[in-house]
Design a protein around this nucleic acid. Structure first.
Lengths: 354, 354
DNA sequence: TCGTACCTTGCATACGCATGCAATTTAACC
DNA sequence: GGTTAAATTGCATGCGTATGCAAGGTACGA
């Protein structure tokens, strides 16, 4: 017969506030709603009573009805590369600025993102952001069927039905090629990361194709394997020990380039005197005096804004927009890891003094 | 009279699976439960049908009943200092390893953590981790009243009723003092960060009190203001321009020490020839050849494990344990930003050659 | 004075799932 | 084969909130 059996006391509900005020639970609900109609007077009474009782709406219960959790899942496949903490920071700021919360997933090394997507969908997130990770087209279809928008950040898969945001890696790499040639470099090289990463592919292709356009001979290349400092370091040692050494190296990322600078110095070579070094990303580290790395700056803040905008979080009921691909221009930042080796233009000069 | 009106089609529920199989919804529920009793045969039928229909349990609905969301909130007040991405990585790994998810909060600059706690509690998180941030005792009481365990990582407030995990900053700083004195340094200095941060207070105190015990004269000191590269850089310039220059500087953190090294070099001073530099944390950057920083290594992985363990996530109903404070020993990592300046022990030698 | 329109509130129900209890089936044993 | 215990399943209900609908209240104009 007992109407209510011994509440666990840990949870104050709208019913408690309603009882205290002698009104209905609906009224409490409406006091915390932006849209519902309620008199100012009553609203104040409810707010005051809620504060007195320590009542806070349970957003979990709310989302059961509204079908919106106000949570955005962010998948960070990599937190070691200094580029990604910056990305995460910007993304979270954007998400929070829109009144949403961030559910963060970090796959364990080697774990495919497809494996954790079900987990993520079970939490009924309103949207998903993937950084440096891709999903299968089957999973993309699952998300589409659930009206859960997905955006891929800094990577894309042609044909995959999800949004994508990246800086214009091809154009950025072309700028690097232009810059190196115009500063008199004659034997540029590229050090690659994962072969299948679009960032790697585009930067490589933009660089090499532009070099070719400029009439340069075939570009040297070395595979590092991944986007890490260690990989860049090791690949650089291999490359610089060869007979025909490059006079400039462009890396698929800044952190790799940092490893490259350290490797070159360890071999007794001067940067930029003996070899110019160029990275990509403009991570904070690139500005440090001991690297002072010439690089392409990715406009992370803008990219993050565009990415979150693409999710259409403002729409009450997800107006499923067609998958869009947005590329954003980066800019060349010249620092002292590169130098002018002679006449500007496609000069045939052989050597350049300091 | 329609029993069910036009489902939005975006959500497959347990009812759908039940109807397809001609069993009750309870059975579906039990098939996805670890503890409930269900025959193997039925379980397989349910799983198969679920896969066919694309059914995934809605954990939001589940948590309404179980009163557990399996979400842990992590508050990261700082993502710029390279120490914290490492911390976040370890914490998230620990959280996920226990089958929980991470709800990430990054307060905007200057925003007190107390302001975002209500947000966080509304999401009914099962536990909260604060990194380099503190909350009011009122808020701590609110959490206690809700049986939501809170652990403070790398910072603590004496008397505050929440768990805390930190490396033993006092002992670590004492090791630095011992090391510098035993390597013949005679004029050590300390560069401080935020005055009220316990990490700063303890490192300063451990260092200075140990120097005093060893019979050293009063230690030089300079206030940087915060834990940033820029602050360390600026404070170092101020300190090294003074008449009586130190022969060793201990910084409240690695990133500050990195700024210090660059500042010293810019002033034409050699590290460690003219001044030894010691940091704290052992961030990845400290191992780079251009810094090669002597420092105290914080055992981040172990600290993260202890922190998450303290939350007692395994317990079905939070057995509210008394707030515990755990300190974990760090270890001195000597690299080439420091050198031996003469006889070991409390020598009175004046100068030391290279 | 009454009637109309609008604003405010309460009632009832649904969101998707877990779980105590009772009913039913299966297994086990003599 | 019969009896009893154990395992399995269904039924009914509740978790805390939002919301359509109807009822009540207020203000206003005629």
């Amino acid at each position: 017969m007992a109407r209510r059996v011994q509440k666990p006391a840990t949870q104050v509900t709208a019913d408690d506030v309603a009882r205290k005020l002698g009104v209905s639970q609906s009224t409490i609900s409406r006091a915390f709603s932006m849209t519902a109609s309620i008199s100012e007077k009553m609203k104040r009474r409810v707010i005051d009573a809620s504060n007195a009782l320590g009542y806070q709406p349970n957003v979990i219960a709310r989302s059961l009805i509204t079908r919106r959790t106000n949570m955005v899942a962010i998948v960070m496949a990599n937190l070691v590369d200094p580029f990604y903490p910056v990305v995460l920071d910007e993304l979270v700021q954007q998400v929070q600025a829109r009144g949403f919360q961030t559910l963060l997933f970090v796959p364990s090394p080697g774990q495919p993102v497809d494996d954790i997507m079900p987990n993520l969908l079970q939490y009924q997130v309103d949207a998903i952001v993937l950084t440096s990770a891709t999903i299968s087209s089957a999973m993309a279809r699952t998300c589409a069927a659930r009206d859960t928008p997905v955006v891929s950040f800094n990577r894309y898969v042609p044909g995959l039905q999800i949004h994508a945001v990246a800086s214009d890696n091809i154009a950025g790499a072309r700028q690097v090629a232009d810059y190196l040639v115009s500063t008199g470099h004659e034997r540029p090289a590229f050090i690659a990361a994962q072969r299948d990463a679009t960032t790697n592919i585009d930067r490589r292709h933009g660089f090499m194709s532009r070099l070719k356009e400029l009439g340069m001979p075939a570009c040297l290349e070395e595979e590092a394997g991944d986007f890490s400092y260690e990989a860049g370091y090791a690949a650089t040692k291999r490359l610089l020990r060869k007979a025909k050494r490059p006079d400039a190296i462009f890396y698929a990322s800044d952190i790799m380039a940092a490893g490259g600078i350290d490797a070159a110095r360890e071999l007794g070579m001067g940067v930029p005197e003996d070899v110019s070094i160029v990275g990509y990303d403009d991570v904070p580290m690139a500005a440090l005096p001991c690297y002072s790395l010439t690089t392409i700056r990715q406009p992370v803040a803008e990219m993050a804004k565009v990415a979150i905008d693409l999710l259409g979080l403002a729409d009450p009921r997800g107006t499923k927009s067609a998958p869009a691909m947005r590329t954003i221009m980066g800019s060349l930042i010249t620092r002292s890891s590169t130098m002018n080796r002679g006449t500007a233009g496609a000069g045939r000069k052989r050597k350049a003094a300091r």
